[in-house]
């Protein structure tokens, strides 16, 4: 059984159905890529996994999502704990307009960690995980907005890692970065998958082919095909997937 088990998940923005009976299983410590044309529901799907969609007015969700065997849409689920465990990296790097230190330790503070030694240690370890420690250890009180785009995105990942999540959801994490920076973030993802389960949404099929172990293809809210990346890219079973990855569509 995977760390995330989604069965028969449908999602509605008011009357509009954005996800249609999605069923899939995501394995622990693997990278799962979700591809598909714009507006097919990739972001929506990602955000159902840590219930960020609850913030949307008039949204409604049916079906089941199990994370570590726990039904996260059950009544009485600790949302704060769920979101700590299932972190989200956004499309654009979006550090708070605060210092680097405050950015990385933000999550710790909201989860009530006050011990200075613990904070220092997590700070260091998070920044090391994203390969920023060496560059930034002497300028922790610099404003995070003064970093480059790539550094900012790394910092955002460090901010997540500081609260010790198990799953990292990444919504087109490289779309605001140049090629060189993208490559470096991809390297980082390969490193991170030793410890974390990663689900990445991407527009870029090469990126999915490069970094992921599993790939799912979404079209108009439907999960058309899901399987090992090599299989999806070399021998797709569905015509629509084939059209998409060979570039005849999308």
């Amino acid at each position: 059984m995977g760390i995330i088990e989604v069965s028969d998940l449908s999602f509605f923005y008011g009357k509009f159905q954005a996800l249609k009976n999605v069923t899939l299983s995501i394995e622990k410590q693997k990278i799962t890529a979700l591809i598909g044309p714009s507006g097919c529901g990739k972001t929506t799907f990602l955000r159902t996994l840590n219930r960020m969609n609850d913030l949307v007015e008039g949204a409604c969700c049916q079906g089941q999502v199990l994370i570590d065997g726990l039904d996260i849409y059950q009544k009485g689920v600790d949302l704060l704990e769920l979101r700590r465990k299932v972190g989200l990296v956004f499309q654009r790097p979006n550090p708070f307009p605060l210092s680097i230190f405050d950015n990385v330790t933000y999550g710790l503070r909201v989860h009530g960690v006050q011990d200075r030694d613990v904070i220092q240690e997590r700070l260091r370890w998070s920044l090391e995980s994203v390969r920023l420690w060496k560059e930034l250890k002497d300028s922790l009180d610099r404003n995070a907005l003064s970093l480059t785009g790539e550094q900012q995105q790394r910092l955002c990942i460090a901010r997540l890692i500081a609260v010790e999540p198990e799953i990292l959801l990444m919504d087109e994490p490289c779309s605001a970065l140049d090629l060189f920076a993208t490559e470096k973030i991809e390297d980082l993802m390969r490193e991170l998958k030793k410890q974390y389960t990663i689900v990445i949404v991407t527009h870029n099929m090469q990126q999915a082919a490069r970094v992921s172990d599993f790939t799912g293809y979404f079209l108009l809210g439907e999960l058309v095909e899901f399987g090992e990346t090599t299989q999806i890219f070399t021998a797709p079973t569905d015509r629509r997937t084939e059209d998409y990855i060979t570039g005849r569509f999308g």
């Binding site: 960020m52 956004f90 979006n94 307009p97 997540l160």
Partner: peptide, 27 residues
């Protein structure tokens, strides 16, 4: 204050009050 700061804060597991006092007000 950009909406996305609030989203980030929630996605790290903050409550509404924490989001308001630690992110929105300082910004």
């Amino acid at each position: 204050v950009p909406y996305v700061y609030r989203e980030v804060s929630y996605s790290l597991g903050s409550t509404k009050w924490q989001t308001v006092t630690k992110v929105v007000l300082p910004s």
